[in-house]
């Protein structure tokens, strides 16, 4: 299988993932014999360009979080390459590096977490939380750190006077801003955000999404945005990757993916989102069946048992990710012949 090659673009590729696999063994019995494997991430390839946002969507258990953790090397991938381009242009495969080798890359990749209540230590002040990465990476002067933390808090829209308070004094939205300030402390080049707004109230979600867009402009950040909420992903992403049972089924520029999906699963996902318009109360489109188990996936295309377009070939043969238009990759045997409905635009 060929990996998706970026179409010619002025922007350089910051991160390229090739054939990434992460299997978790299932042990059984006294001897802890490996009886099976959960193929959480099963041969995933994609790339992220400098300064863009790549959205990674899928339902629970599709491997989106595992894939993002492998990229950050919080997990060691089973196989595959994670090619990261540094500021000077050298490209390194993070999958091959050990703890020591990774140290140099840690400040360049940071994470924004899902739950702003669990991701901040309640016993640390905001100053401690935001300055910790600075200290770890060599900023030993407290005065210098205080100045830097004040700057970071202002950047995310918090008052620097709050620095000495503890997380409990802040609301969910404010805590998420603190988490963002911490992630940005080391001026990372890649920010992985795993469901950063799904724990927030609707009225606060918009604030955090706007902040992320503003920061991206101001600091030319690159985001890998992992989420299950399609409307949120559409709002923030330049391109979107759709995952299903450990595999990427479709990758495309955002507007193209939402207007003209080419994979039946993408179309089904779009159809399942309830539209906030009572005048357009369509018969809710129903995708039959359940998400397949990554420990025991079906033969051929993993989506075939739920796919209304499945033919014999889909049951036998696993489809490959193929480029059908510039930057548009689909893994479906029938991608060329199907015409699928997208999310209809308002205007």
């Amino acid at each position: 299988m060929t990996t998706p090659k970026p179409a010619s673009s002025p922007r350089q590729v910051l991160l390229e993932v090739r054939h990434l696999k992460k299997y978790f063994p299932i042990y059984k019995g006294l001897m802890r014999k490996v009886v099976n494997q959960v193929r959480a991430v099963d041969d995933v390839s994609f790339f992220v360009r400098q300064g863009e946002t790549l959205g990674l969507v899928g339902e629970s258990g599709c491997g989106k979080t595992t894939a993002s953790r492998c990229i950050l090397r919080a997990l060691t991938p089973t196989s595959g390459e994670i090619l990261f381009r540094e500021a000077d242009g050298t490209v390194t495969d993070l999958a091959k590096l050990d703890r020591r080798g990774l140290a140099r890359f840690r400040p360049q990749m940071q994470m924004i977490f899902q739950d702003p209540f669990a991701s901040l230590n309640p016993r640390m002040t905001i100053f401690d939380i935001v300055s910790e990465p600075l200290y770890v990476h060599g900023m030993r002067s407290r005065a210098e750190r205080t100045e830097k933390v004040a700057e970071l808090l202002r950047l995310v829209g918090l008052r620097p006077e709050y620095m000495q308070r503890y997380p409990h004094a802040f609301s969910g939205g404010q805590r998420q801003r603190i988490g963002i300030a911490r992630a940005l402390a080391l001026r990372p080049r890649l920010v992985v955000a795993d469901e950063p707004v799904s724990a927030l109230d609707v009225s606060v979600q918009a604030q955090v999404l706007n902040l992320m867009l503003e920061l991206q402009e101001a600091l030319s950040l690159t985001y890998l945005f992992v989420a299950h909420d399609l409307s949120v992903v559409k709002h923030i992403s330049d391109r979107v990757c759709v995952m299903y049972v450990g595999k990427i089924v479709e990758t495309a520029p955002t507007l193209e993916l939402f207007a003209a999906p080419r994979h039946p699963y993408t179309a089904a996902l779009l159809a399942a989102v309830p539209v906030p318009d009572p005048q357009r109360r369509t018969a809710i489109q129903e995708l039959p069946g359940e998400v397949a188990s990554p420990a025991n996936p079906p033969s051929g295309c993993y989506f075939h048992p739920r796919c209304q377009f499945a033919v014999e070939r889909c049951r036998q043969e696993s489809p490959q990710l193929e480029e059908i238009a510039p930057d548009h990759f689909v893994s479906c045997h029938r991608a060329a012949e199907l015409s699928l409905p997208g999310a209809v635009s308002h205007v």
């Binding site: 404010q174 109230d201 606060v204 706007n210 559409k234 709002h235 939402f258």
Partner: peptide
Amino acid sequence: LKSIPSVQSTPRVRLPTISGSI
């Protein structure tokens, strides 16, 4: 109603927000 992103809205534009928090 204005602050929710929708699968039908234009991507990467500033959403109108409700200031402050609950």
